[in-house]
Amino acid sequence: MRNLVVITAGLSTPSSTRKLADALSAATESTIGARGEGVKTTVFELRELAGELAEAMTNWGAVTPHLDEAKRAISTADGLIAVTPAFQGSFSGLFKMFFDTLDTHALDGLPTLIGATGGSTRHALMLDYAMRPLFNYLHAVVVPTGIYQSTDSFGSEEGAQTARRIERAAAQLADLMVGPSDRVGGLSGIGSNDDSSPRRKTGLDLEEDFVPFEQLLGGHTGD
């Protein structure tokens, strides 16, 4: 069973951002399912975490159970889908605030698909000059195809092209989460579902920074 986490920063209900996130996750689930694997998808609406995010940013000792749940889910995820509305030509402040609260190693090696929504296609490049640098900085493995969906694309040829891009992006994420069928299990690292494999840091537990005594002494002979 693969774990897929979806982060969506839409503010309205219904939300075009959530709709895009659902389309991306459904396409990914379908692709992985066709390869004989199950998928557990967990969705986090950042607008529901807004209060805790504000507390976390202004008081590092604040109790934030729902935010902590999201951090723990990401730490054991096999894949991540992150979607934001475009604000002022970039990602939203709420979206950035969430990733600012994560441990610097929280996304290490995590296969990630990025997407955004906006009123027009004029801001489509924000995927490459805003979102991709953010996730590269956090050491995530971002798939080549990002998805930008504007409200004026629905029912048009551009909308049909977006649907095809969604399928392509989902296949790229599935490749990283599951791996080619001819790959020997346990050798790829990325996408491994072995429970003994190390988990990414949440920044919540002191034990995450604990180094076993045997490891500290590794290589020392006593001479």
Rank of each mutant, 00 (worst) to 15 (best):
R2G: 03
N3V: 07
L4C: 09
G10W: 04
G10E: 00
L11P: 10
T13K: 15
P14S: 01
S15M: 08
S16G: 09
L20V: 03
G33W: 09
G38Q: 15
K40A: 13
T42Q: 05
R47A: 08
E48I: 03
A50M: 01
G51I: 11
E52G: 04
L53W: 04
A54T: 15
A54P: 02
E55L: 11
E55S: 12
A56W: 00
A56R: 07
G61L: 07
G61C: 05
L67Y: 06
A70I: 00
A70S: 05
K71E: 01
K71V: 01
R72C: 05
R72F: 05
A73Y: 00
I74G: 01
T76W: 09
D78I: 11
L80K: 00
V83S: 03
S90P: 00
S92I: 08
G93E: 01
G93V: 02
G93W: 02
L94D: 04
L94R: 02
F95V: 04
M97W: 05
F98V: 00
T101L: 03
L102R: 02
H105Q: 10
H105E: 10
H105L: 06
L107T: 09
L107A: 08
L113D: 04
L113Y: 02
T117L: 06
T117A: 10
A124V: 15
L125W: 13
Y129N: 14
A130P: 01
A130F: 03
R132E: 08
L138S: 03
L138M: 11
V141I: 14
V143L: 07
T145D: 08
I147L: 05
D152G: 00
S153F: 02
G155A: 04
G159P: 09
G159W: 07
R165N: 13
R165H: 10
I166M: 06
R168I: 11
Q172I: 14
D175P: 07
V178H: 05
R183Q: 11
V184E: 11
V184A: 10
G185Q: 14
L187G: 15
L187R: 15
S188H: 13
G189R: 12
N193G: 15
S197M: 15
R199L: 06
R200T: 08
K201E: 09
K201C: 06
L204S: 05
E207W: 08
E207P: 04
E207V: 12
D209Q: 15
F210T: 12
F210R: 12
V211Q: 13
L216E: 10
L217S: 14
G218A: 12
G218Q: 09
H220A: 15
G222A: 10
D223H: 15
D223V: 13
